[in-house]
Computed example of a mutant assay.
Amino acid sequence: MATEIGHLFHEKSGFDIYELDQLVWCRVSYALGYLHPQTDLLSPEMMLALQKGVFDEMWGASLTDIVDQVANHAVPDEADLKVIASNLNRENVAHAHKIRSFKQAYHAEAAGVASLFATVISDIFEQIVTRSGTVPAGVQFIVDDATQNKAVHLVALALEKEVARDTLRSLHILVSLHASLRWDKQRKIDAHDLLDFNHAAAAIAYCDVFLTEEPLRTMVEQRHLGLPERYNCKVRSSLAGALDLIRSI
């Protein structure tokens, strides 16, 4: 999602950029970010050699290698997701009287999702001014609160424009699913929905096939969302359906 926002701002700033479909993919070892060893105890030349060696090792790591390394280490506590879901349900109930259409629900969720990326947007602005030469080398660029708030608002507004949804695709999917759930005032969000919505946002935006459970398939295929059709992704929720789709490829 950060890559999509960065792509949008760099493109609108006039920079030459790679296609978004090329930028979002990475090796499995870097799925949670790019980290490199760093210490002042080694010379710059030795530090660079060490970083290259680690990069090469990580680049060749398979999914099973990563799983073996994680082993029995602690995983994120689902209780945290339950707290988030509970808070969202409470807020949705409190503001339910303000939501009279799906469009209103989408508008509210777009603002909420965009606000999550305030820090990311500041980093992107720093990249842009550095790349453009607006700020001299070695001078730190700091985005003030007013500029950051305006940029967040721009992302929220962009999400409501059809043309921007081709770039902010995973954000649009996430906003659409939360808005759909919020518009259906009888349904409550749970901890698993938070994970499932993120799975759907990534898969439908960039994959050819998304295999999921029937309730989520029903949601993403709602006519007023039209997510699989927009991003040319086939969704299946049964073993038979998945096998038929694979045989047809």
Rank of each mutant, 00 (worst) to 15 (best):
T3W: 01
I5S: 03
G14I: 03
D16P: 00
Y18R: 11
E19K: 09
L20Y: 07
D21L: 07
Q22M: 09
V24N: 04
R27Q: 14
Y30P: 01
L35D: 10
D40L: 11
L41H: 12
S43Y: 06
E45M: 05
E45D: 13
M46F: 08
A49C: 10
L50D: 03
K52R: 15
G53F: 10
G60C: 03
D65P: 08
I66G: 02
D68N: 14
Q69Y: 10
H73W: 02
D77H: 09
A79L: 10
D80L: 11
S86L: 10
N87H: 09
N89D: 11
R90A: 15
E91L: 14
N92H: 10
H95Q: 11
H95R: 13
K98P: 00
I99Q: 00
A108S: 12
A110K: 00
A111F: 04
A111Q: 13
G112D: 04
G112M: 05
V113E: 11
A114N: 01
S115E: 11
S115M: 05
F117H: 15
A118L: 00
V120S: 14
V120D: 15
V120W: 01
I121E: 06
S122L: 00
V129K: 04
G133I: 07
P136W: 06
G138A: 05
V139G: 01
Q140H: 12
I142R: 11
I142Q: 12
D144H: 08
D145K: 12
T147H: 01
A151H: 01
A156K: 02
L157R: 10
A158C: 11
A164Y: 14
L171I: 07
I173Q: 02
I173P: 01
V175I: 12
S180E: 13
L181I: 08
R182M: 15
W183M: 05
D193L: 03
D193M: 08
D196A: 12
H199S: 08
A200L: 05
A202C: 09
A203G: 00
F210R: 07
F210C: 06
T212G: 09
T212V: 11
E213Q: 14
E214D: 06
T218R: 12
Q222E: 14
Q222P: 02
R223C: 04
R223N: 14
H224S: 05
L225Y: 05
G226Q: 06
E229I: 12
V235K: 03
R236M: 09
L239H: 01
A240F: 03
A240V: 10
G241W: 06
I246H: 06
R247F: 11
